[in-house]
Structure formats: C-alpha cells, structure tokens
Design a protein around this nucleic acid. Sequence first.
DNA 1: ACAATGATAGTT
DNA 2: ACTATCATTGTA
Length: 211
Amino acid sequence: MIPPDPISPDPISPDLILPDWCDRPSITVAPDLIGCKLVRQLPGGPLIRSTIVETEAYAPGDPACHAYTGKSKRNAAMFGPPGHSYVYLIYGMYHCLNVVTESVNTGSAVLIRGLELESIPPHLSAKQTAKPHRIAAGPGKLCRALEIDRGLDGVLYHPAQGIWLEYRPKVVKAKDIVQTTRIGITKAADRPWRWYLKESRSVSKKLTAKR
DNA sequence: ACAATGATAGTT
DNA sequence: ACTATCATTGTA
C-alpha cells in the first residue's frame, strides 16, 4: 500500500517498516516490535540506532487507552494513519513515544517503553559513567535520550522525518519474550498487554508491580 | 514514600 | 475558571 504522505518515494530499503505493517491490532504489533530497530537522526547531530526491548499495547475499547474517550487535540495522531508517531507529555516533564496502529479513525497505538542503544551518542556521554544500558530504559528516559518531544507528534516513521523503524535483523523466539500486565495504569490494569525481551538489561521493570 | 512539573479533560 | 489526574522518574 502507499503511505498517505507527500513524502518522496525512498530508495529501496527493505529493512524499513512501513504503515502497512502497522495496520494491524496493537496487541499483535506490540510483541512484533520487540527486537526491531528504532533509529533516530538528530537534526545536525548523531545517528542513534537502538533495539526495541519493551512495548505496551493500547487498543480500541480499552479504558487505559488515551483514545478511549474519543479524539482530542492531544491524541489526534492516534486516530491518524498507522505507521505514524503519537507523542505526548506526561507528568509535566517526560514525553512518551508510540507507534500508531490500525487504520484511520481507529485510535490504537503501541507505547515504546525500553530501548537498547547500539552505542552511546556524544551528547549523552556524560551520563555514560553510571549505567549506559539504562539510558533509554523507560518511556520517559528514551524520549529524553533521543530528543523526542511533541514536535515529533504525528510524523510518519521514515528517514525523511529523522525517525524510523526497521525490521528485526534476527529472529526473536517467543520464549525470549515475557508478557505481563502494563505499568503505571489503574484502569484495565489486569490486561496482559506488555511485552519485553527477557534477556535485556534495558527493560524499565522486569516484574509487574504487585497489588 | 513522595516531590517535580505542566498539559489535559472533566466539572463548576 | 477550577481541579484532579496523569501510559514517569529520581531521590529519601
């Protein structure tokens, strides 16, 4: 299918994840994104390549989903075409990055919660001393590391936008992925719509909070 | 356990 | 206009 954007057709890049692949239920796309690459080209800065190690699905009819009560200024991108971003500000200080799933006007997305950076970019080298593998462990932290804010809300995942997705470079087996309940929500907290790479040290939290 | 910090959505 | 809430994080 053709991306509904006025973006010039890109050179043959078989690794690039396109909107059509995201046009499926978030509960299917979320585990499929584990092991895929998120790449960020900072404007006038470094190229940051990373592996997605933790995701959560937010679905139509899901009380925890921002789209649950309908379209608004904040969540408009969720109702847009798949394969685009949805970025929002949370707690007044952190941003969260999503991949919009399913067709226009559906209102579903996958929250990216953890990234493993392939290397530490220069602008983060000061923080490198502590725990480099934790720099993008958590939805707020990864947006800070990749300089993602609402300016990137609703853009197509594509090199031309400075942010894109690539397919898994190698197979990820089901037994290497853990499925648990989602973090930080009160509504529909029992739905097991969070996935993470078992072996990764860049997962925000390994176990779901009890009680 | 809790403060930081501001936009959002629902209520007067 | 007012206010409770919030898909978080770092520090105590």
